[in-house]
């Protein structure tokens, strides 16, 4: 009962501050940008003056699976940034402004407080991702060739797990820092460090969450879900849940005021 009150408040807040509008729009924009610009690249080059005479420039023919991977690539950089910006103040902002004093002085359970925020963010992120990838899938189909709806749902599901990890990381740092800036900084820093470590130790870190995109691409090429993808998704989900559990503990230990 109390959980749903907190969750509904999050949904309402995201509606009032227009997050339900701008986040899906930005994610859609990022998802369709590459499929469309690549398709119209010859026209774009022409309109900016064309190539020098005699230049032979062969534009690659992209396969539908390559195109949807371009969308994921955009989401992995700018999309992650959007999610970090979106979530950086969700707890830290309330603590800094002092609203959390009025909330947490009521008999509110800390786990309800944190999980309601986590799940409301996930709902927003997953819905935006769904709309973004759906649009990307639509353009891929009309501009590049067929990508089955089943493949689209698989991409959506597995990539959603990566973004779940990003949200969980942000929640984790939210429970530690009062400054939204520090939350954003450390979330991005962690993702970068994870990426570097995965690249350096790629021979041992088969199931690092940063490999999700690679396995998604393999899945599209091989047209089947391999064991590594399942395992990597499992690891990413497990880390996410663990981060939230640790956040709750951190939050309990933190003093709400002072």
């Amino acid at each position: 009962m109390q959980w749903s009150t907190l969750f509904q408040k999050e949904l309402l807040e995201n509606w009032r501050n227009k997050k339900w509008i701008w986040v899906p729009l930005v994610i859609i924009l990022l998802s369709i940008m590459d499929p469309i610009t690549n398709y119209f690249l010859p026209q774009i080059i022409e309109s900016v003056g064309g190539m020098p005479d005699g230049t032979v420039f062969e534009l690659p023919d992209f396969s539908p699976s390559e195109v949807i991977m371009m969308s994921l690539s955009q989401l992995s950089s700018l999309g992650v940034l959007v999610i970090v910006l979106l979530s950086m103040g969700t707890i830290s902002g309330e603590r800094k402004s002092g609203v959390s004093e009025l909330i947490l002085v009521k008999p509110v359970s800390y786990s309800n407080y944190i999980t309601s925020k986590w799940l409301s963010l996930l709902l927003l992120v997953w819905l935006s991702l769904f709309l973004g990838l759906l649009m990307s899938w639509y353009y891929t189909n009309i501009l590049y060739g067929t990508l089955s709806f089943v493949d689209f749902t698989k991409v959506f599901f597995f990539y959603g797990i990566w973004l779940t990890l990003v949200v969980s990381l942000s929640i984790f740092y939210n429970s530690i820092f009062k400054s939204s800036g520090l939350v954003a900084f450390f979330t991005i820093l962690t993702i970068m460090i994870m990426s570097i470590i995965t690249k350096i130790f790629h021979h041992v870190l088969d199931w690092s969450p940063n490999n999700l995109s690679i396995y998604i691409q393999e899945m599209l090429t091989a047209e089947k879900i391999n064991g590594d993808l399942w395992a990597t998704s499992g690891v990413a989900l497990a880390i996410s849940v663990l981060l939230v559990l640790v956040s709750i503990q951190m939050f309990k230990r933190k003093e709400m005021a002072g």
């Binding site: 501050n17 002092g98 609203v99 009025l102 509110v108």
Partner: peptide, 19 residues
Amino acid sequence: QDIRSWIGYLPQYPSFHSW
């Protein structure tokens, strides 16, 4: 023990969800 159910509290500079 947790006594939050029986008390009400107002800080010196209360901050609300202004939206």
